[in-house]
Amino acid sequence: MKRKLITLLIILVCFLLESSVFHRLSFASVKPNLLIVVTSSFGFMRGKKEGMFVGFSAGLLADLFWGNALGFNMLLYAVIGYMNGSFKRMFYDDDVKLPIVLIGASELVYGLSTYACVYMLQGDFAFFSYLFGIILPELVYTILVTLILYQIILHINKKLEAEEQRSASKFV
């Protein structure tokens, strides 16, 4: 129960930060995508199911407030969370390369899918200008933010796991 509340709180905080603070901190008018970082982190730290639920809630928030069609972001983030969850076995606490690679890949998939569904299907084929203008700058900025945000999420996860281990051992 406590884990669910804390997870929801992290998603909410990142969502609020993205809506307000990061608009001012935008670099070349590009903002980082914190919800992708949160979804991917929970995905490969906790597995497929939890990654999927985190992705679903993050995407739901994004769709309700920012998107046009309800369900587009929801589906995309849920799938990204699920895919990241399949990397759980390769994940070790002190490794920082795998998280960055996974988060970068997730961000790229998000950018390409958004372009493909929202712009390409409407006949807007200026792919390279969007690639260099939006997708790549967002990727770089998100990876920079990951270095900080991921450590915070990892720290919170470790503390929660330690508490759960302690309460599990009490039942013996």
Binding site: L34, A62, W66, I134
Partner: peptide, 15 residues
């Protein structure tokens, strides 16, 4: 204005 769009693909905001 209370919130911007967090995504780089849209330019909407909430009042």
């Amino acid at each position: 204005m209370i919130a911007n769009n967090g995504s780089n693909w849209f330019a909407t905001f909430t009042i």
